[in-house]
């Protein structure tokens, strides 16, 4: 999977669902599965969800592009319900995230490991354009490091979410985020939460990128 270099586009165009360059990028279609119930971190969650369906989103389309300064991930998936505003205690928001290995060998499927962080670029429907830049070193350890660097674009129409999650390729921080540059390769994964199904936290659909994400060479 390649984050294709796009010449002469700014962040605004990268974040625009209607930008022409997106039509020219062949999306990766990733099959999604529910995260295993045995991997849920607490007994209460395992007990509640062992007999309930989750992982309702079965497939996600992923494309990626960058302009030398910013990288953008475009996600599309089918969801008959637009769950973005809470109306009650038992209503949850739709959400999506792209996970990147911050260091070589970081286990993306396990949300990292101690000393081997993964970087999660996170969107939630009720938080809109303001995404989250998250670091995790294992299940249950995710921590928002900032709410400024990750910006999102969202649109729900025709039973489909289209979401773009963008951030600078490099961020000046000591946090364990993935620092990106042309030619760099890393493991990646995608997560989708279907709010109508009560999905949140580890109750979600997950797709591991079978290959490496490559940041395309500028030129």
């Amino acid at each position: 999977m390649k984050a294709q270099y796009i010449k002469n586009v700014d962040l605004k165009q990268l974040r625009d669902l209607k930008s022409d360059f997106w039509k020219k990028i062949q999306p990766n279609i990733l099959p999604m599965n529910p995260t295993p119930v045995a991997m849920q971190p607490t007994q209460a969650i395992r007990s509640e969800w062992e007999s309930k369906p989750y992982g309702l989103v079965k497939e996600v389309s992923l494309s990626a592009a960058h302009n030398g300064r910013f990288v953008a991930f475009r996600l599309e998936w089918t969801d008959p319900n637009q769950d973005e505003n809470r109306h009650d205690n038992s209503i949850f928001s739709d959400g999506a995230a792209v996970m990147l290995a911050s260091v070589p060998g970081a286990p993306v499927t396990l949300m990292g490991a101690p000393g081997m962080p993964v970087n999660i670029l996170y969107w939630r429907a009720d938080e809109g354009e303001q995404g989250r830049n998250i670091v995790a070193e294992g299940i249950g350890t995710s921590r928002t490091v900032d709410q400024e660097m990750v910006v999102c674009t969202e649109q729900w129409a025709n039973n489909t979410w289209q979401v773009i999650i963008a951030r600078p390729l490099k961020i000046d921080t000591k946090e364990g985020i993935a620092q990106l540059s042309s030619g760099k390769e890393m493991a990646y994964g995608v997560v989708i939460w279907n709010g109508a199904g009560g999905e949140r936290a580890g109750i979600k659909s997950y797709a591991a990128g079978g290959d490496q994400l490559v940041i395309g060479e500028a030129g």
Binding site: Q43, A44, S47, D88, N89
Partner: peptide, 10 residues
């Protein structure tokens, strides 16, 4: 063993 519960509504 944890018993599944209900989230009370508003």
């Amino acid at each position: 063993k944890a018993k599944p519960g209900h989230i009370p509504s508003r």
